[in-house]
Amino acid sequence: MSPLSPLTAPSGLPTVPAHGPDAAARLATLADVTASDAALRRFLHGLPGVDAVGLEARAAMLGTRSIKTTAKAFAIDLAISMIDLTTLEGADTPGKVRSLCAKGVSPDPTDRSAPKVAAICVYPDMARIAKDALGDSGIHVASVATAFPAGRAARSVKLADVADAVAAGADEIDMVIDRGAFLSGRYMEVFEEIRAVKQACARPDGGAAHLKVIFENGELSTYDNIRRCSWLTMLAGADFIKTSTGKVAVNATPANTLLMLEAVRDFRDTTGVQVGVKPAGGIRTSRDAIKYLVMVNETVGDDWLSPDWFRFGASSLLNDLLMQRQKLSTGRYSGPDYVTVD
């Protein structure tokens, strides 16, 4: 199957991570499709259409796997280690962010064998507080930026927002795309904005914060748009693609996450660049999380089954995973009294 007729897929390319130094050169091989607005549109609209019924059926089918005993224990620990523990409320306080950081470092105080989470996800003004609270624990600080969640601000404001978060110590930046521009077909504008944000992620010491690009699938309205958006953002240099902000009615669903997983798989086949995926919003139970892990394993395989390549944007999911973990280790059902309230 050749999903990308306009391209000649280079075969046997060694995989490079999207955040690595070699990715830019690989993306440059596709410079012709991003050379102009017309070329980009031609490429994105030339992507094969999505079979919505087939996609949903496949996602639903992958959700029926039964994962038990040791496999379940492994999946629960893996899921915990993939969580971007999130607090994105107007009512966030430094105290709340610090307690969330403490929870991220040691999710289950009664069981030190519980793994720590991947990152703490906060608003930019809380990034420094989170960074100080996490210290050298190895947990990343992820900061949303670019006028999250709507993304309706001038580009200069968005870039200042990003630079601010990076200066405050954020290891990862979660940006939102300009959905208005995308939906009205101004693809190049979206592309250039992502490029600009990626540049703003650079640190003076030569490193760079990883860039996650949020699509807000609930607002893109069609699966075709999600596929186009995936390719657009990956071509622009996204390190991670993320389903949604968690602030609208439709967030991560198995079907749209599966579609994005297929996109990162096809992108790696084409360019050799590996991009991560982060479903966010609406994943609350261990059962849901395990379904996503099955989907990752069946779609893109082991290479993505690590916190470096797959994340859950969630807050209440962690408590449910911990309760399941306690059930597995003690044999007794646990309850909300035995996990922290956040």
Partner: peptide, 9 residues
């Protein structure tokens, strides 16, 4: 037995 051992009961 499951109800008797359940921590949330």
């Amino acid at each position: 037995p499951h109800l008797a051992a359940h921590s949330d009961v």
